[in-house]
Design a protein around this nucleic acid. Structure first.
Lengths: 315, 315
DNA sequence: TTAATTTATTTGACGCAGTCCAATAAATAT
DNA sequence: ATATTTATTGGACTGCGTCAAATAAATTAA
């Protein structure tokens, strides 16, 4: 079921963009071509060796119409066609140098026009815009959207802690019903970590995809020869990709190199996915206590990893 | 100057939505009307008493073309027109009951179609979608976007602190070059506040517009008869609307009712806008000390307000 | 293998959406 | 009072895009 306001917002947006494309189509980029013709030329310039059928499927045109346009292009010398050797009904289209010239011109004007449109949009506005456009495409048609970018790991930047706190608090509230005391705890841990940060002995990683933060973990000095793994979090969108394990292994590696002998962490039994990762990476449960600090009753657990042992088994 | 990738992303989105509107236009909603005719009927149903000129300006159509369509609608009995008494060249258009019926049908089908499109989009996806659509409209054409919704103030909800920390840390890093120690401080304050929250004596307000958080302030128990105002923050988009003052006044009112005799706060001289608000609402600077806790040197300032006095002057 | 069906493309025929120009009439400026 | 601008309309026409039918190759069924 979809909320009526959602639908009305979408209708309004459709009207808005219909207008936008309408003015775009009118005397298309000051060339003698139609918007449709432009699209076809674009597709042929962007890919190589398209077949007419493919083109048709992707653009959803009438085959007769497409055929006519292709004929026109062929006569104008923009494209060449040769029958597909594997299926002689079909033909492979190729753009000629002359056609590519037009393609470039069209592209240039299109870019120019967009740059004009953006003249009054500041940098954050532009960022918001492309973000929003990506979001719409990804939501409405996951297949055409840009393929999932690789996840990268980078060090802390300002704002990351706030993100982490919000993401973790809302996710665990939604998923496990944890209350605001959990957000408070995360905030305090994150705050203390940054306030007392020791770059030699501590580290924070933020996993990012497409400029969007999707995961985190940090290693804090636990005193003595013990490091503490804290605030491991994965956005729902990247769960099940092995990213959690990669983050934890990152922590193990760093802790070992930093000279710690033990890596310890505190978690709760309800977070089964995380616990699974800890088990897999060699952590052992050392103690457990029942509590209801965050609303629902659960077992707080302390897990530890002997880094010397881990090093051996990894070798 | 606009980044090339930005432009390419926008071009890709335009192609994407051109397709979308293309399939929308094809046999428009299974009615004998064109998409353009549908738009015109929509505009006449949505507003009352439009003039043809207005319609024309808003939809960007050829006047002759519009005239023809209106004639058709008039003959079909969908609309009536009377000359505008104030300008007899112009005519005022009004939709008839019969026309409204068609209008409703079209709306119904349009809604139905969108609901179908959304069948495979989950709730967060839908939220992301409408957010993105609003963002695009607001960015590309601030005037047509929904008028700025009223700002509402509501109590704390889970995730608010994380938001506040990120927003404040990134904004002040950008604007004043404050470093990560500032984010750490904000996180610790926010964390402690929630951890020790006393609903009788403490309060947190989040200012929200259109479901988007745009401001915050909180009152914490400072011990004895002193309340502390903390973490006043306004998103750049709502600065200069008097919202900051409203938030501070909210705090003063609450502190007074809660029985405090003094409201105190700590801030920094570089935050001139905030300081201006404190002055206006009656706070007095009581002490000042130079520090570089957050990178750049500045003056930390303690301001205080005598609540008894404030009450008198307000009365 | 042949016959029947499906698929890729093309052509003929054509409607009608949308454009351009000029005309009319009222309003506004000079 | 005259000239210019603005709102609307009709005539005339272009060509976008559609529908149906034809052709030829590929695929499936018999």
């Amino acid at each position: 079921m979809t909320a009526p306001e959602t639908i009305e917002t979408i209708r309004a947006f459709n009207r808005f963009y219909t207008n936008k494309i309408g003015v775009l189509a009118r005397d298309y980029l000051a060339t003698p071509y139609t918007l449709t013709e432009g699209r076809i030329l674009y597709e042929m310039g962007a890919r190589e060796r398209v077949s007419a059928t493919e083109l048709n499927r992707d653009l959803g045109l009438d085959p007769a119409y497409l055929s006519r346009i292709l004929k026109k292009f062929r006569e104008a010398g923009f494209i060449e066609s040769e029958p597909d050797p594997s299926d002689k009904r079909s033909q492979i289209l190729n753009i000629t140098d002359k056609g590519r010239e037009i393609y470039e011109t069209l592209g240039e004007r299109s870019r120019q026009q967009i740059a004009d449109d953006l003249r009054n949009v500041d940098e954050t506005g532009q960022a918001r815009l492309i973000d929003a456009m990506q979001a719409i495409r990804a939501t409405l048609d996951p297949s055409t959207a840009t393929p999932p970018a690789p996840v990268i790991m980078r060090p802390y930047r300002i704002g990351d802690m706030g993100w982490l706190i919000e993401a973790q608090a809302t996710a665990y509230a939604r998923e496990y019903g944890l209350n605001e005391k959990f957000e408070a705890l995360v905030a305090e841990i994150a705050g203390k970590f940054i306030a007392n940060f020791n770059p030699e002995r501590e580290r924070c990683w933020i996993a990012e995809r497409d400029g969007r933060r999707v995961g985190s973990v940090l290693v804090a000095d636990g005193g003595g020869d013990t490091a503490k793994l804290r605030l491991l979090y994965l956005d729902p969108s990247v769960r099940g990709l092995g990213l959690g394990r990669a983050l934890v292994e990152q922590c193990i590696k760093f802790s070992t190199l930093a000279g710690y002998r033990k890596l310890s962490l505190w978690t709760n039994d309800i977070l089964t996915a995380a616990i699974h990762i800890y088990e897999k990476t060699g952590f052992k449960l050392v103690s457990e206590e029942r509590h209801a600090m965050f609303g629902p009753e659960c077992n707080g657990q302390t897990w530890e990893l002997d880094l010397a042992e881990a090093k051996l088994s990894a070798a």
